[in-house]
Simulated assay, not measured.
Amino acid sequence: MPRFKDKVIVVTGGASGIGAATVDAFWQEGGRVAALDIRERPDRVPDGVRSYRCDVADETSVEGTFDRVAMEIGDIDVVVHSAAVLGGSGPFHQLSLDTWNRYIDTNLTGSFLVSRAAASRMVAKATKGRIILIGSVNSVASERGAAPYASSKGGMRMLTRSAAVDLGPYGITVNMILPGPITTPATRENFEQPETRRTFERVLPGGLPGSPADIAAAALFLASPESRFVTGTDLMVDGGMLAQILN
């Protein structure tokens, strides 16, 4: 029997990349999936998946969308929060406040809004649910020209712990997945460049980036009964990148 038969799954950032792969993975496991995104998915969603427009940085949009999901699909069991502003932003001393706010508003405040919307409904329905945030290796280590992104993802890491502590008494687990380099429509062109390939050969023990399906598989585990005693922690899915010291 599919592991998530009749469970209601909400995936933000569900139109592409990691989010789309996560939508498909839960659907294949029998879940009733709501794919939330600020834009339409470029390909047709599978039958049984419902798409919703949602801006995770906007409280009204998040609350209204979660209300619609509960009304149209059912009480929410699992939330996987993948929506994010990605990429570098330039040297620290040249950053504008607008640039800083764009990353913080979507990545950190958006994580709070989505997690709170999920948690409040789970608590109200006595649902022993799962909240899974998609972070980054930049949650624990920065790189040049990425201060707002790394700061927002680092903040998400502490948000995960704080929410897990507060929600544990209700049987709700909160965890974070930290992807390393993942080939998506947004990264494919850069990842195919010879210089980038040489970098991966150096920094990744296996030499190759991961796929969105690798992150979706981690989300399936954290949403499963087998992860009942796992909460407030990170699952590093980075191909060993942060495990090695470069010579």
Rank of each mutant, 00 (worst) to 15 (best):
V69A: 01
L97W: 14
R68A: 05
N101Q: 14
F92C: 03
V78G: 05
Y52S: 00
S89Y: 01
H93G: 02
P91T: 00
I73L: 12
T109Q: 10
A84V: 06
C54S: 07
C54M: 14
V62D: 05
T99L: 08
D55Q: 14
T99H: 02
S61D: 11
A70S: 10
Q94T: 09
D98Q: 15
R102N: 06
E63M: 07
A117D: 13
N107Q: 12
D75F: 01
A57T: 07
S61F: 06
S96V: 02
W100F: 12
S82R: 01
L95N: 00
T127V: 15
V62M: 06
R116S: 10
F66T: 00
M71D: 12
F92M: 08
G64C: 10
N107H: 12
L86I: 11
P91H: 00
I76Q: 08
S89A: 14
S82I: 04
A118D: 11
V80I: 06
C54D: 06
I76A: 10
I76S: 12
R116Y: 07
A124E: 09
F66A: 07
V78S: 03
G64H: 13
T127I: 15
F66L: 05
R50E: 01
K128L: 04
C54G: 06
H93A: 09
S61P: 08
L108A: 09
F92R: 01
S51N: 01
R53Q: 07
S51V: 11
T127M: 13
G90C: 04
F112K: 03
E72N: 00
Y103H: 12
S61Y: 06
G88H: 05
T109I: 14
R121V: 05
Q94N: 10
G88A: 06
S111V: 13
A124H: 02
I73G: 00
S120P: 01
T109N: 13
V78L: 01
D58N: 15
A118Y: 02
E72I: 02
Y103A: 04
C54H: 09
V85C: 04
